[in-house]
Design a protein around this nucleic acid. Structure first.
Length: 193
DNA sequence: TCACTGGCCACCT
DNA sequence: CAGGTGGCCAGTG
């Protein structure tokens, strides 16, 4: 048990229409986890508390939660990487934010994808000098910072959308809001490059 | 150590 | 284009 384990994280939330957003902060002012939008406040909080059961609610970081909401809705904005806790040694929970160097490399690479553009899982793998395409997908699936780390901008090599923790439809929705043209096919949607 | 499991890829009908 | 198959490779238990 490290010292941080005793300290609760702080969860702030934001509501927009029927969607609830939540963000978890460690004591040293770093984001440790972000929740994809949920249909209720409880669910949004739970998305974070299940990884960090020791938490307190606060409005301290409501502005961040609001910003995450805006990014979700296609506003071209970003949150600096240094606001995120990317060091697995600093995790306030035994369920760490980023578990391995591989995951960290993937997350950092995905962070570089500009607004309104996409990259493939294969390209991400190549960028980090790896051929582990599938592992890249898994790592992105475990991304603790959805929306802020734009995992929705990573698609399959054949142009199809690929998976998303919040469901492929949500991924499609965010991409459309960023201005990406998507054609509907019988067996799923496809990006028009 | 071993057997699985994936937000995948390439190739084949 | 739509399915199916084998092959990858990092994590997990």
């Amino acid at each position: 048990m490290n010292e941080l384990e005793k300290n609760p994280i702080i969860i702030s939330t934001h509501n927009h229409g029927k969607l609830y957003f939540a963000v978890g902060y460690s004591k040293n002012n770093k984001i440790v986890r972000i929740a994809l939008p949920q249909k209720s406040l409880e669910e949004a909080i739970d998305e974070i508390s299940k990884y960090h059961p020791n938490y307190k609610l606060s409005d301290k970081y409501n502005d961040t939660a609001n910003k995450i909401c805006q990014i979700y809705h296609g506003v071209n904005s970003d949150i600096e990487l240094d606001q995120l806790e990317l060091d697995q040694n600093n995790s306030p929970s035994s369920k760490t934010t980023i578990k391995t160097p591989f995951e960290r490399d993937v997350i950092i690479e995905v962070a570089k994808i500009p607004y309104g553009t996409v990259k493939t899982y294969k390209e991400i793998a190549k960028s980090i000098k790896s051929t582990a395409y599938r592992a890249v997908g898994t790592a992105i699936g475990n991304n603790p910072f959805p929306i802020v780390i734009p995992c929705h901008r990573v698609i399959r090599s054949d142009g199809k959308i690929g998976g998303f923790r919040g469901g492929t439809p949500m991924k499609v929705e965010i991409l459309k809001k960023e201005g990406i043209i998507i054609e509907e096919l019988k067996n799923g949607s496809r990006i028009i490059l």
